[in-house]
Design a protein around this nucleic acid. Sequence first.
DNA 1: CTGAAAGCGCTAACAG
DNA 2: CTGTTAGCGCTTTCAG
Lengths: 340, 340
Amino acid sequence: MVTIKDVARIAGVSTATVSRVIHNGSQVGDACRARVKKVIAELGYQPNANAQALVSKTTNTIGVVTPRLSMSFFGTLASGVENAVRENGYKLLMANSLYETQSELDAIQSLRQHNCQAIILNSEYSDEATLIRLAAEIPGLVLVNRYIPQIANRCVWLDNIRGGQWVTEYLLSKGHRQFAAITSIYQNRDPAERLKGSRQALLEQGLSLPQELVAEGTANMAGGEQAVKELLARGQRFTALLAYNDLMAIGAIHALFAAGIRVPEDVSVVGFDDLPVARACRPRLTTMHYPIEEMAAYAVNLAIKLSNADNKAVGQTHLFMPQLVARDSVCGIATVAHGL
Amino acid sequence: MVTIKDVARIAGVSTATVSRVIHNGSQVGDACRARVKKVIAELGYQPNANAQALVSKTTNTIGVVTPRLSMSFFGTLASGVENAVRENGYKLLMANSLYETQSELDAIQSLRQHNCQAIILNSEYSDEATLIRLAAEIPGLVLVNRYIPQIANRCVWLDNIRGGQWVTEYLLSKGHRQFAAITSIYQNRDPAERLKGSRQALLEQGLSLPQELVAEGTANMAGGEQAVKELLARGQRFTALLAYNDLMAIGAIHALFAAGIRVPEDVSVVGFDDLPVARACRPRLTTMHYPIEEMAAYAVNLAIKLSNADNKAVGQTHLFMPQLVARDSVCGIATVAHGL
DNA sequence: CTGAAAGCGCTAACAG
DNA sequence: CTGTTAGCGCTTTCAG
């Protein structure tokens, strides 16, 4: 391994001068600078990042913690983070939290041990108190997809209520009046908010979504299938189905077809997230686009600013809006022959 | 930040002793060890990873380079790597290479600068000479999804030829005799090998796959759609369609349905990879399972061994086999009314 | 079994 | 403009 000493010796200068050249310190003579640069190039010298980190108390590294990279949503999130991190000249340390509070905490610890300059955290299950404490300890900590009022300036989040509202209004505008919903068994934050938005939109039209028209399942395809089967078993009638997310929506479509019910001709189905899979399934899914990649990039930039004590007003909020993407899983009620 | 000195001072021992306790050196008295452990716990001391790296010339960090995390295949790969890395007590540094040779090289450089103990690389476009050189320079470098004979012991790869062969044999066993294929415009390695396997299987039955029954497209949904349109425009007849991968297969199914051709009733379609999306589309896709997560984990363990100079016989190869997953996009030719 | 001391590669005053 | 010097936090001989 070629070190700064080697460069200094061969260039006939001190290590301090080499260091100055590396960091573009203007305090170096032109001739000297040229000579050092030449030697650096010849030797293929690269500063040792660990040594730099040790002395400067900070790394050019940003950490990210998500539940599980293999899931499309988090892979896209990570990809957004990676891009922004790279564009800012930083490196990315990554850890899966596996949906568990303890491994989430472990992941954060391990990132801190490496002196990450900032940490982007998609926390699903840690409680607010823990997160608030963490935020106090780590200047560059930013939460994605979660909103905690006390640390609003650290949160980059999505308006799920609006999302639920807008997608429901879209269905209403298409003439639908008979709604059903499938939601996550974990009725925390997102599922609750999306449903709340939907109910708000319905209420404005004098409609409601009674409990018997809501079924629960795990937030994936299997859960969607199961929830729809339950709805069908209950003998409920509906022309529009609101799914918590795209995966559940796709599961729902499978179950519906299995029961001889066509989508969208008999029942319109909407998802949420706009995962890549929403364009792969048939019919292509009408859904709310979750700008996760942009949010991730935004979070990285915010985290960098915060970690540089670039004082953000406490209480500032970083809110993103979902957007409707109309595809083929919804049709107007006028064209519906009979509903269900 | 609490350092080893703080612990030493408060515990009334030297830093050397604290270091020994941390590393479970057996050279410490029980009483002393207990006292130190207590202080460590009280202070919440965590060794500074950068300082450790500096002195020990190696980190507990493993790097991974993939083209783009937001793509399902690579997200799953990364997830497999992450799991194995964590289980081995290492941390994960990650970089996207964006399908470009230069940024791939940059990514590797940046990982080396951090003294990663090992690097897992999914290289698509770097040439073999570069990779061979890199392997010589970096003891812990392992290539995933690529095979280079000269550095066979560094390659964890899949038998694409067999894959192409097996999936084709499956179709043959279902009675199909009229084949078409859609493949990637980049006729490097994987696409060429899968096609080669298919042709081999066909040849054994006295069949062939002439060029007019092969169309090219980008290796994604759009490419699949376009390739099928081309096949159709050429007026080709076939009952079985071999797609380079799942994404192209799904695009193909879309294009087929758009043309009024049913899958699998009129045409059977097979993919390759077994991405999550293969279970989401309708009909669910029959495809070759690519054990990418297992391969990633295997690669990590191999990389760790190699980096510890745990001498692997040069020339050893680490080959994985794909596996057929029969779902709903294929049906027997006996039940086909007319073919296309 | 434990401590003292040297040094990993680099940066940042402080002199000159 | 450039060199000297003193560490950053930790591990690791080498003595004791």
